[in-house]
Design a protein around this nucleic acid. Structure first.
Length: 259
DNA sequence: ATGGTCGTGGGACGA
């Protein structure tokens, strides 16, 4: 089965590009970030017409995450645990069942800029909450994955020009340490495990001809529990999507699982 | 140093 993550940067602006991509790539499950839509305003019908079930954790204007799944969606949980006052829609998880059940978690990790400041503190505290949820997932010893826009450049090789990101919240040492702390609990970072990660990116800014110059960064990741990693057949980035009409600034990442 | 580009929503703000 194919599971994808895709930061669409506005669901309404991306309907044609997203539907074209779903039709071509045929993922069984698509985890979407930055839908920038409230749940009641989410345009679900075109996806249901393609055979997808839809679960949304939305917010008007900003953030927002969603799960599209051709498999039945069960036990949906909205919001990352650990802060009842957090209003930002950045986390949705559910169980999907093919031959085997898999817990899929869709996340939109805070950007954190400017740094230092309250937005960066929110990013770090969100990452600590993520670490706690990640540990519980591992303890369950079930096939599970956490995928989405992590807003983390894990290593220098994940940026075309790492020197230009040195003071940025996506690449500060404290950010990379927090990410590594989560991975090292026992996850497999799918793309790095399968590919020569150097020179492969998932985001190119709209500004400054970043795509044309290939000034990209790899910030959209799949973290697999050992039980999910054992099922992995492959992982790839659908880079060509960045060059289609009216693209998102991110492209989809896809894992294939024997599940 | 500045502005460079998008999306949302109809003005800034976030990225």
């Amino acid at each position: 089965m194919l599971i994808a993550t895709f930061n669409v940067n506005g669901i309404n602006a991306r309907m044609k590009a997203l539907i074209d991509w779903l039709t071509q790539a045929q993922p069984d499950v698509a985890l979407l970030q930055e839908i920038k839509s409230a749940e009641e305003a989410f345009p679900g019908e075109p996806f249901r017409d393609l055979g997808y079930n839809v679960a949304v954790h939305g917010q008007k204007g900003f953030n927002g995450v969603a799960i599209l799944s051709k498999l039945q969606i069960e036990d949906v949980r909205r919001g990352l645990p650990g802060d009842g006052n957090d209003e930002q829609a950045r986390w949705i998880e559910a169980t999907v069942v093919n031959r085997k059940a898999i817990r899929v978690c869709c996340l939109y990790l805070p950007n954190g800029n400017p740094t230092p400041g309250p937005k960066y503190q929110y990013k770090l505290s969100w990452m600590e909450r993520l670490r706690l949820r990640a540990r519980t997932l591992l303890d369950s010893e079930e096939p599970a994955l956490m995928a989405g826009d992590y807003n983390v450049i894990p290593q220098a090789e994940d940026a075309a020009k790492p020197e230009s990101w040195e003071a940025d919240a996506l690449y500060l040492q404290e950010t990379r340490d927090a990410f590594r702390r989560i991975v090292n609990l026992g996850f497999t970072e799918a793309f790095r495990a399968r590919e020569q990660a150097h020179g492969h990116y998932t985001f190119w800014d709209y500004q400054g001809g970043a795509r044309r110059r290939n000034h990209g960064i790899r910030i959209d990741h799949f973290l697999l529990t050992p039980q999910a990693a054992d099922m992995m057949i492959g992982c790839h980035i659908d880079e060509h999507v960045r060059d289609l009409e009216k693209p998102s600034d991110h492209v989809p990442v896809v894992v294939e699982l024997d599940a």
